[in-house]
C-alpha cells in the first residue's frame, strides 16, 4: 500500500503536476518543505530589519513611502510563506518560537549591517535581484501552495528591484561623494549576494534529493552564474565596478567567469558569528514579546464578543 502511494506521488512529481496539501507525500518531502519554506519565511521577516533601519532617515517623503511599502511587502511575503507551511501541518507560533530561539535559520545576507542609504538601493538591486533568481524557478516547484506563494512574491519583488536600481541611478547622477557611497555599498554587498545561492554544488548536501522531488529546480551554481550574467551589464549601465578581479566574459562558455566568495566567512555567518546575528534575533524576540499584550487583548475581546452573542 505504501509503495503504491509512493509510486503515485513519484508519478505526479515526474509528470510536472503539483502535490497538494492533503495528498500523500513521503515524510522526508514534508520535512524538507517545512524546513525550506520556514527558513524562507523567516528570511522575509528578518529581512525587514536592515532596510527598516532607514525608514526614519529616508532623504525624502517619496523615498520614505517607497521604503515603507517595500518593508510591508517583506512582512506580507513572510505571511504567505508561513501560510504555506501550515498546509503541511506546521504551526506558525511554533515556527516563530524556533526562529527566536535560534533553532531555525534565515538567510545569512540579513546579518550584514546597512551602513548608508546607498545600501537601501544596493539591497533592492543585488539582494532582491539574487532573491528573484532563486525564486522565479520556485514558481514551478512541485508543492502547490509553495509555488503559488512564490508567484505572488515574484510579482512584488520586481518593484523591489526596480526601486533599488532607480535609487542608485539617482545617486550616481549626484555628487562624487554620493557616487563613492554607491561604489562602497556595492563593494560590501557583492560577495554576500553571491553567497545567497548557497554553497557550491560540490558541498551542497540537500540539492540532489530536492532536485529529484522537484522542490528545487536549479543547482546553486547554475543560479549563481545566471545572477552574475544578469548583473554585469546592469553594473556597467550604472557606472559601478563589481569588486572581483577575476570577473570577465568567457566567449567559449557564453558566460562570465568569476571568483568564489569567501566560504569560510559564509559558514561563520551561518553559525551565528556575523556582524548582526545577535542584534537581528534580539530585535525579533523583543518585537514578539512586546506584541504579546496585543495578541492577548484581541483574543480576550473576541472571547467576550462570543460570550455576549455579538459575533
Amino acid at each position: 500500500m505504501a509503495d503504491e502511494l509512493e509510486l503515485a506521488f513519484e508519478r505526479t512529481v515526474q509528470a510536472e503536476a503539483r502535490i497538494e496539501p492533503r495528498d500523500w507525500m513521503p515524510d522526508g518531502y514534508r520535512k524538507t518543505l517545512i524546513r525550506q519554506i520556514a527558513q524562507h519565511a523567516h528570511s522575509e521577516i528578518i529581512g525587514m530589519q536592515p532596510e527598516g533601519n532607514w525608514i526614519s532617515r529616508a532623504p525624502s517623503l517619496r523615498r520614505k513611502a517607497i521604503l515603507l511599502a517595500k518593508v510591508q511587502d517583506e512582512a506580507g511575503h513572510g505571511l504567505y510563506l508561513y501560510s504555506a507551511t501550515e498546509t503541511l501541518g506546521a504551526d506558525r507560533a511554533d515556527l516563530t518560537d524556533k526562529l527566536i530561539e535560534g533553532r531555525q535559520k534565515y538567510s545569512s545576507i540579513f546579518n550584514y549591517p546597512t551602513l548608508t542609504f546607498a545600501d537601501v538601493g544596493v539591497i533592492g538591486w543585488l539582494v532582491d535581484g539574487a532573491a528573484i533568481c532563486n525564486q522565479v524557478p520556485l514558481c514551478r516547484t512541485s508543492y502547490g501552495p509553495y509555488a503559488r506563494a512564490m508567484i505572488r512574491v515574484c510579482k512584488e519583488e520586481s518593484f523591489h528591484q526596480r526601486q533599488g536600481y532607480e535609487l542608485l541611478m539617482t545617486m550616481m547622477r549626484g555628487t562624487q561623494a554620493q557616487r563613492d557611497m554607491v561604489q562602497d555599498s556595492v563593494n560590501r554587498w557583492w560577495w554576500p549576494s553571491l553567497m545567497m545561492f548557497g554553497p557550491p554544488d560540490s558541498e551542497s548536501s540537500n540539492t540532489e534529493q530536492s532536485m529529484a522531488w522537484r522542490i528545487k529546480r536549479n543547482t546553486n551554481d547554475e543560479l549563481r552564474q545566471k545572477f552574475v550574467d544578469m548583473t554585469v551589464p546592469q553594473a556597467e549601465k550604472l557606472g559601478v565596478t563589481l569588486p572581483d578581479p577575476l570577473l570577465k566574459w568567457n566567449e567559449e562558455r557564453g558566460h562570465h567567469d568569476f571568483g568564489q566568495p569567501d566560504w569560510d566567512e559564509f559558514w561563520q555567518v551561518v553559525k551565528g558569528n556575523g556582524v548582526c546575528n545577535e542584534q537581528r534575533l534580539a530585535h525579533r524576540r523583543k518585537a514578539h514579546e512586546d506584541g504579546a499584550w496585543v495578541r492577548e487583548a484581541a483574543e480576550a475581546y473576541a472571547a467576550k464578543q462570543v460570550k455576549e452573542g455579538v459575533a
Partner: peptide, 11 residues
C-alpha cells in the same frame, strides 16, 4: 488565495 490567523472574523 491563502490563509491567516486572526482572533475574530472582522480582524
Amino acid at each position: 488565495v491563502g490563509s491567516l490567523h486572526a482572533p475574530d472574523a472582522e480582524m
